[in-house]
Design a protein around this nucleic acid. Structure first.
Lengths: 246, 246
DNA sequence: CGCGTGCTTGACCAATGTCAAGTATGGTGG
DNA sequence: CCACCATACTTGACATTGGTCAAGCACGCG
């Protein structure tokens, strides 16, 4: 879900306001490399958030576009009675708030201290308008998110609890690798067990129990409560794809 | 899922090769209204399919783009062990095969005798390239499909069997209304119970049982096996949104 | 070091899945 | 036009997975 748009980007000094901002890839912050900081400031600015702080709610007007530079968020929808479905987790490089509708389709909430670049939506739209290749990039972005959403539909509709957890961990590992460009064996879980449960269509108790099973089978290890180490990636893979019988 | 791109289109004679073809909306068949049939023929042609016949399989190269003019299809993904998730159903006006990847992400199979316009993918791409507004339309299409996919994630992750069925019927009714532009009380179900089950993440037995419950509560009626009448739309709506307690 | 929150574990329960008959529908051929 | 057949649908009995409710534990913060 919500796949990263971050390709390999040219290095930018860590002090640069758009360091780690994948909007560069969209040629937005590319401008900035030329030193035109004024352009960036006219487009938006920066923002920081604390854990649990909502960035926007489902139904809010889409007045801004965000690009995460540090930290993570969850995005979710609620049913009237409070049941929750987490649609995905957002990490550095991911875009938030790009929507064709003028209302956000979900709530976004920080999981940890999180930084992001912010752009006024109308200026962002103008900016997009000016660049012929921008529509294509946005389209490509949406197409990738659609593919991720469809994979999640398979998971939610047809996979067992263990298969869901295994798929989730492998997904996180792949995303970390895409960001960091090196094989990853340990994964941070900035979200709670309840968040994971609401993402995978389970309860937090089932998540705990399956975690215990995976641990006992020596497929993973809990480094800390919020960090797992993958001990047997092939094994996890087999479970994730439903090739093993439990 | 897979929302229709069909807006209100100018009438075209029923004998016209692109009658009912929403590609017109994409300015593709708009050309045809000027009588340039040659352009259409160079772009593609027509195709008919029988029930059960696959249009393409998951993993096939995306060499063609289709626009359904009559009938319906299901699109689905398979897990290695044969479990199936139906991603959606396609009706007249819907596009198929538009993908950023060069491989289809799912299998498409006709549910009934089905007609479609066909375009060579590279010609379609060229055509898109020439029109500045085409990218935007494709983007909008992808964005709507993404929204539908996310709604389905909520359904699959968090709704009960009865809520899923109710949501499904209302969805079909709305789609029929979008196509036909008149309130709809009876809905055709060109797909089997198993197809519905695989779409909603259930088994065919559960679909049957829930259908019996809804019938018994006088919310729906089976006109024939493959056609239901909605007797109480508010009641169905309440169930679909989880506002009722079973 | 102690406290609170979130995580884990256990016992039990409910919803849905599985397996197996039975039934009906609608298509076909006499 | 009717009867038969195949297939798909429905229904029933039972199994299973995951959910619920309730303790207990432990991590990490202060």
């Amino acid at each position: 879900m919500a796949t990263s748009a971050a390709a390999v980007l040219p290095a930018l000094p860590a002090t640069h306001p758009c360091h780690g901002c994948a909007a560069r890839e969209l040629a937005l912050c590319g401008v900035l490399q030329e030193g035109e900081l004024a352009t960036f400031k006219s487009l938006g600015g920066h923002q920081q958030m604390s854990p649990g702080q909502p960035l926007f709610h489902e139904g809010d007007p889409t007045t801004q576009v965000f690009n995460i530079t540090r930290g993570s968020l969850k995005i979710y929808k609620l049913l009237p009675d409070g049941r929750r479905q987490v649609m995905g987790f957002m990490f550095p490089g991911d875009f938030l708030g790009i929507s064709i509708s003028d209302e956000h389709a979900f709530t976004a909430e920080a999981l940890e201290p999180t930084h992001m670049c912010r752009f006024a939506r109308n200026r962002f739209d103008d900016f997009v308008e000016e660049r012929p290749d921008m529509e294509r990039r946005l389209y490509s972005l949406a197409a990738h998110e659609l593919a991720a959403a469809q994979a999640q539909m398979v998971l939610l509709g047809r996979k067992s609890a263990a298969e869901r957890l295994a798929s989730f961990f492998l997904d996180l590992a792949q995303r970390a690798e895409r960001l960091g460009r090196a094989p990853v064996t340990a994964i941070d879980l900035p979200m709670s067990r309840l968040d994971i449960a609401d993402y995978l269509g389970l309860t937090k108790e089932t998540v705990s129990r399956v975690l215990a099973q995976l641990k006992q089978k020596r497929l993973i290890r809990l480094v800390t409560l919020n960090r797992i180490e993958i001990l047997d990636r092939e094994g996890l893979d087999a479970i994730a794809q439903g090739l093993t019988d439990n």
